[in-house]
Design a protein around this nucleic acid. Structure first.
Lengths: 169, 169
DNA sequence: CTATTTGCAAACGATTTGCAAAACA
DNA sequence: TGTTTTGCAAATCGTTTGCAAATAG
């Protein structure tokens, strides 16, 4: 995927926490600290935007490991809370490192043209969500919210967008 | 997928517009009115919640047609604006009939346990979205928003939920 | 009659899984 | 050493596509 514009990502997400802190979290969860896991976590550390398994695999370079290993580890890391999974509706899951508790819930603004991703702090108002849950008798209600549009850089080009892809109107 | 609770769906979406009105829209788009298309549209007409291609296929019963035909037609119908595609993050696209312009934008509340789907009118505040777009220099910004939780019926049972699936925290 | 549409089978891309070898603790 | 993790290959699942036959207008 072409992430040419991804440098627009909000700087606050580029905070790199030390790798040792991450491996410690692995040990705390009684998981083994393997070279593959370190390499994967290291790739995630240095990326502000969520990456697909394939992108992680490509970014591993020298520390290459099997794609299946990445898939398995993203499951593990997600269930351990080290990583969060996002879906942009294009058929590939994306994963982002959770640096701290405050990162556990946020959203994205994705360019329909070049797939640039901007981290967003805006969120659906809690009070609305609570009212909505109560109204329908649901409990433990959460939401998935992602924004799509045309990024500044792509506003000049005139590339067509596939109208059948799941971009809400 | 188990949609046992789907009768919770908001009644306003059960409005069934005549099949002829739909086929007319096909003709208006210079598309042929085939038996398969009529059958597919008829299935969508009588369902309040979005259906997967497989669910549509199963619902066709006697008027069975090839799955590939359904996939191709959902593309066609989506690009014609007769149908809208939704993604709940479980890997299967869902489609819902658009009865009128007011239906072009709405959201869902999905039960994590039984996949019951409730149609939701609540939406992310337009002014927030506009501010967000301006702040990041994006144009033509839209959003995808879906809610997840535990439906009234499932609040009694104690089924575990896969923590690795993309349900935002 | 002619462009569209369909059925069938094969192809695809993302993801998962079985199993034996390799590696952490 | 005993359990977890990895690599490899095969399997799965949703979806797409090539192509010849069927069909709507």
């Amino acid at each position: 995927m072409n992430n040419a514009c991804s440098q627009h990502a909000h700087p606050h997400r580029l905070v790199q926490q030390p790798l040792t802190e991450l491996t410690d979290r692995l040990r705390a969860g009684s998981r083994k600290v393997t070279g593959q896991r370190e390499a994967i976590l290291d790739v995630l550390r240095r990326h502000a935007s969520p990456l697909t398994n394939r992108e992680i695999h490509a970014a591993l370079g020298k520390n290459d490991c099997d794609l299946a290993t990445i898939y398995r580890n993203m499951h593990t890391l997600t269930s351990m809370g080290l990583v969060k999974r996002f879906d942009f509706g294009d058929g590939a899951a994306r994963f982002e490192l959770l640096t701290d508790a405050s990162d556990h819930h946020h959203h994205h603004l994705v360019c329909n043209q070049c797939s640039a991703i901007v981290e967003i702090e805006d969120c659906f108002p809690t009070e609305y969500e609570e009212a909505l849950a109560k109204r329908h008798g649901f409990t433990a209600v959460t939401h998935r919210l992602e924004f799509f549009g045309t990024c500044p850089r792509c506003q000049k080009s005139t590339a067509a967008v596939d109208p059948t892809i799941a971009r809400p109107s």
